[in-house]
Design a protein around this nucleic acid. Structure first.
Lengths: 190, 190
DNA sequence: GGCTGATTGGACCACGCAGTACAGTTGGTG
DNA sequence: CACCAACTGTACTGCGTGGTCCAATCAGCC
């Protein structure tokens, strides 16, 4: 059972580093200290099933990485903290990015993996929306901002920033996009 | 010479439809009505070189698709037109998206292709920034908006919207993100 | 201890694909 | 027309990789 976990972690790491196309089952075996027979033992459907497990693991990680800030977006200071955590996290990861890999590689691979991505985005958006609604309730954001639309725009902005970060190595776009969205929410309240 | 062009177009179309991993040189040959010998004649370095040519072609196409609106962002009506063109274009393309393929697939493949992506983003951002500066000169956008940052945020937003569109099939995120940015620019002027 | 089923190792196979070799075949120039 | 170089068609090869097989080992249990 622990073996299964090791395989998934090894596959996830390997994919993050070298991309889905560059990773072979033997690489995964080598890194996890196992072989193909274990791999096919735990994932009878082979690579596809393994990829799905990796997708699920990476999706979890994306939200984990934003906790506890994502759950407590109830003051401007909290939003700024969250913003900093997100930027710092992605800046540090650089190209080695669970979210990026999920959305640009694993996600397109199979409908099931696409569903995982969709679920992640929906959950993420729900959390952000909850934060916006809290702020509206506190009178910090104007009531005529549509929380769902704004939350959708925010995660799209992060997404875009991350994708650009992955291809340029610079986190500037991510920061600017995130800051513009936050400014928008703030300005609305004035 | 026309043959070379046909090969690139065929490869681009094939990659857009089935992804970089799903396309073989034989597929490209079949679709372009050529064979591997032509392919290696025009692209002696094989697949990598072909991919780079495809990247360049797709990068061109991304900007072409936004003309003439992108070059004339000098009134709010023009910005709205541009917004509509972008959304409509990407909605219609759906998963079959030059920009998406470039940024999520070809871009990671080789440093040279990455450079193509970088160049596209820089050019694109420059065009948007020019539009913002025009509007500032006309007094339609507040002078304290940083045109470069706002332009960066805008293209990140589009990027994110497109990536989400590619994995969810819905253009909502793209629209919301783009609208939020435009609202931000407008609100700033009040 | 010996039986059974769940694990593990690693050699093995089949096959799809990038890349090559080589034999034509055009088309332009003297 | 003759010649040469730039093209085109096609059969072939070598290799990497996903997936299979079976023999060995381990863990629990009577």
């Amino acid at each position: 059972m622990a073996t299964r976990g090791r395989i998934v972690e090894a596959a996830a790491a390997e994919i993050r580093e070298r991309g889905i196309a560059g990773v072979t089952l033997d690489d995964v075996g080598r890194r996890s200290g196992t072989g193909k027979s274990q791999l096919f033992h735990y994932f009878p459907d082979g690579k596809e099933q393994l990829l799905l497990a990796v997708a699920e693991r990476e999706a979890e990680r994306v939200l984990e990485d934003q906790e506890p800030q994502l759950g407590q977006l109830d003051s401007w200071a909290a939003w700024d903290d969250w913003r900093d955590v997100v930027v710092e996290k992605y800046r540090r990861q650089g190209v080695n990015c669970p979210l990026g890999v999920l959305i640009t590689e694993i996600g397109h691979h199979t409908p099931a993996a696409q569903a995982v991505t969709g679920k992640l985005l929906a959950q993420w958006q729900r959390r952000v929306r909850a934060g916006i609604e809290d702020m509206q309730a506190a009178g910090e954001i104007r009531a005529d901002v549509d929380p769902d639309r704004a939350a959708a725009a925010l995660i799209a902005a992060i997404q875009g920033g991350v994708v650009i970060l992955m291809s340029s190595g610079s986190s500037k776009h991510l920061e600017y996009a995130l800051d513009l969205c936050l400014d928008y929410l703030r300005v609305s309240s004035s």
